[in-house]
Design a protein around this nucleic acid. Structure first.
Lengths: 186, 186
DNA sequence: GTTCACATGTAACAGGTTACATGATTGG
DNA sequence: CCAATCATGTAACCTGTTACATGTGAAC
């Protein structure tokens, strides 16, 4: 799913600026399953406008840079709806965090504990965001997605806080818990 | 986290071919948090060898194409360990599935139900894989990561099967459940 | 017989990231 | 006064995807 389609999808929920879209992929109701950087969003919106899939209205404010507010067009709606009919591909998850946890014996216990604390705090923040968004949301599809995010974050948060000892106890002890290659090949 | 580092990380657990690494990022103990395509892995391994971070032994079998078995070097271990000390970035999750669910009123109920059934079956398969891997695994960090994957998949599987009616009941009823933009701007 | 799993590799192309450039306003 | 938030945009660069090319052996 490329950034253009993602922007179209977000614009289905209401007009927005590039900046708004960026924010929605960070903290909003899409934060937990859509990823798009600001440097990709602006060119995507320009391309979408050239293709006639969105229209743009410019709001010039005194002093501030003019906001470019994008609205999806009828053609844009059709294009987006058509893209929904394709079989969705498997979710992509990339977690540097789990890679660190996986190899906890290679780093210090302080580092592991610190990274873990940060992650737990992150999850609390995300859970708070989603709970707040859910209260102001009456759209069934969004409710479903917000619920999925909350389910995932809460389950992981709980798992991490209950099982962190597993990785913390072996941190810095590479000698005792050698990874497979070391015991096999040496 | 780029593919080179990912390969290094997997090779910390034992020597492997490019093909093996690909499989481990699909079904193995890394399948749920590492993503690397085969077309990225082969060049990465070549680059890693040129940098002296891995060594390569070629096993020529009768008929079959020779397997190139890569082993991480001492320099490779140091490089990988150093990369673990960097603060891990937030997890990246991209889900076309949730985008479809989010906009379920735009497509038919058949499509939604079909996509949902596929997803549930996918999760069952993944849960089965991980449960099997867990049984043969004594490494604490891996156990932690496998447990995290199981926790996430089981929680989502359960949530989806309990809440699928939310999106199925509105499928194909865009008139009744208009997305925000339609009611606001028209 | 045909499909699948094993096994490697290349190259064109698409795509996105990062950093930079600019500038006002608000809050600490 | 400095940092953060709002707000847009460009471009060099990096990275990875997709499709193709090749070939065996086993299973169905």
């Amino acid at each position: 799913m490329n950034v253009k389609t993602l922007c179209l999808g977000i614009l289905m929920f209401g007009e927005a600026t590039g900046y708004d879209i960026r924010k929605m992929t960070q903290e909003g109701q899409f934060g937990h399953f859509i990823d798009a950087s600001i440097g990709a969003i602006y060119p995507a919106l320009t391309a979408l406008e050239n293709d006639g899939l969105v229209s743009c209205r410019e709001e010039t404010q005194s002093g501030k840079p003019g906001r470019k507010i994008y609205t999806i067009s009828e053609a844009g709606r059709r294009t987006f709806t058509a893209s929904l009919m394709e079989e969705p591909r498997g979710d992509v998850i990339k977690s540097e965090f789990l890679l660190v946890m996986c190899c906890s014996e290679l780093v210090s216990r302080e580092h592991i504990s610190n990274v873990m604390d940060n992650r737990l705090a992150d999850y609390d923040k995300k859970i708070g965001f989603l709970q707040e968004v859910r209260e102001h949301c009456t759209h069934p599809g969004s409710q479903f997605c917000i619920g999925a995010g909350l389910t995932m974050y809460k389950a992981l948060r709980n798992y991490y806080s209950e099982n962190r000892a597993l990785v913390e106890d072996v941190a810095g002890r590479a000698q005792d818990f050698r990874l497979a290659s070391e015991s096999e090949t040496q």
